[in-house]
Design a protein around this nucleic acid. Sequence first.
DNA 1: AACTCACCCGAAAACGTTTTCGTGTTGAAA
DNA 2: TTTCAACACGAAAACGTTTTCGGGTGAGTT
Lengths: 341, 341
Amino acid sequence: MKRKVTLKQIAKELDVSISTVSKSLKDSPEISEDTRLKVQAFAKLYNYKPNNIALSLKNKKTKTIGIIIPEIVHHFFATVISGVENVANEHGYNVIVCLSDESFDKEVINMEMLANGSIDGFIMSLSKETQQKKDFHHITEVINQGMPVVMFDRVTNDILCDKVIIDDNLSAIQAVQTLIDKGFKKIALITTVDYVSVGKLRTEGYLKALKSNDIKIDENLILKIEDIEHCDEAIENLINTQKIDAIFAVNELFAVTAIKSALKIGLRIPEDIAVIGFTDGIISKYSSPSITTVSQNGIKMGGKAAKMLIDRLESEEEDDEHYRTEVIETHLVERESTPTL
Amino acid sequence: MKRKVTLKQIAKELDVSISTVSKSLKDSPEISEDTRLKVQAFAKLYNYKPNNIALSLKNKKTKTIGIIIPEIVHHFFATVISGVENVANEHGYNVIVCLSDESFDKEVINMEMLANGSIDGFIMSLSKETQQKKDFHHITEVINQGMPVVMFDRVTNDILCDKVIIDDNLSAIQAVQTLIDKGFKKIALITTVDYVSVGKLRTEGYLKALKSNDIKIDENLILKIEDIEHCDEAIENLINTQKIDAIFAVNELFAVTAIKSALKIGLRIPEDIAVIGFTDGIISKYSSPSITTVSQNGIKMGGKAAKMLIDRLESEEEDDEHYRTEVIETHLVERESTPTL
DNA sequence: AACTCACCCGAAAACGTTTTCGTGTTGAAA
DNA sequence: TTTCAACACGAAAACGTTTTCGGGTGAGTT
């Protein structure tokens, strides 16, 4: 077992100074060709690679990005990480992933853990609990220390920083409008509780779309799910008790659950009930019937977030107080759960 | 914007030495209560937190684990990361994630990038290309440098290190046996090309199960998918041309694709064709009909791998040459794609 | 012979910690 | 008064780099 070799060891072995070794390896013209080649040969032989930690300490840069997300076993977040990782790698950055598990405390702990020098900047999406508490002190603190933060998807207006989002409101309007255009009138909404920012925006979109088409809003057709684990009962109840011909669900899980419930009681899709979901994940694609969804390009979102963060990290001028919010376009992926005209 | 405060700054401000500050914060009895309290109060006021990078350099420990996996937009791998992250966090470790994208080169680059001091140890699953090339020099090199590696799922016998796997062979046998027990005779296999270690083992299990039940093996019923992107055509072809009554698929994707193909040509599931998949993911659960699968507990696998790695990192004795291979048990989750007896 | 100037290299500081060891001061015991 | 231990603190090394600056050597110029 040969441990990693350091500059010091090479210097000692070749009987030169550490500085000479360092300069030789960097092809400095200060060093004679003789010495330079000798050192380089030796370094190659012993497979010398500079120690990243030492470099980080010296440069005050870790070339590492921290990602904090609510969960990873979730298609959308996984795609975002993938997008981040890709762009980060291209620019020589690594990615540290921390999961908040939708918990405020874990989010805070993770941020503090990473903020002490481990990373150069954050990319994050808020946990549900944080959104509910509206307590963002951990984030402002980090920003105040001069560490850039890019928020995506679940963001908040209470924090000034770069953001990457989709137009949840507009996307929802378009989805519901599509249903209306296809002739549906009794359109139900399956959504989350209001403190989830994206859920709220999508709900508003649903309402706007109905209003602008002069369709009366029926509160009985709006289902706000509190307990995701047991959403199936609530959804079944909705379908059984209300006369509806279409469903707009704010995420994949609600959409697929609605479909399973409908199939269970013998309804045909899309003939009896049409369904549009949100977030184009693996479920929508492989469900039978496959589900029409508003596609949210996670890869693109993650890539964009990473680009924004790296740009900020590598720009000389501290371009403070000049934050951007990028809106990633969505599009409706039409599949089997909605009828073709 | 107040930058992070260091020991040096505190020392200067309070007109004591750096050592005094450091010791005070560690409650060293060497320091008088007066000074101690004064320093602690000041540190708290300025929210002092030791710099992780400096600590890493000093301690030669980063408290960070590197994970290298083929892809993250994949339910199984996401669950493994989740498991790793969980256990890692409990022990004060962070997790750096790198994706090989099934590419040998990216795997090598990522490993080298992380091996230079950024992490304390690796948890990894081989990329397809690496398994095909059988070139593991990057891994042996890392191990030779004294950095522990834990491999999971896609492992190789050519490397001596800790491993976490499931018994792919046995699990496949059990799955196929279940089909046989339920009365199916013409059981097709949809699998990967042989160089994917787990695919090969599952294929062998299928063959063994048939043999031990004296069922003749029909090569026409065995489909080895090369191009995953276009597996649907091959699978449709299989179902259309062969007379089969059940399918054993070595992953979720193949299973759900088989189901969609079967439904498309009007076959009923499980009445006309029963299906068992492998890897209990979100697709199997939410597919209609839902899919019976061999459940591979990714969380448990990741957790176990993290535990093994951390144990090795924190054990004093370099317990070299004494590697363990943990086998995580699987179980069959019976759903709608197989008939109840 | 004195001076200049490349050329080549080493010493040392710096990044932020921890820890060992040394040292000055104080009080009490001899 | 001397001696010695306990006490309180500081200096410095160490981790592995990079980089600035200064200095020694030799050759070439006046």
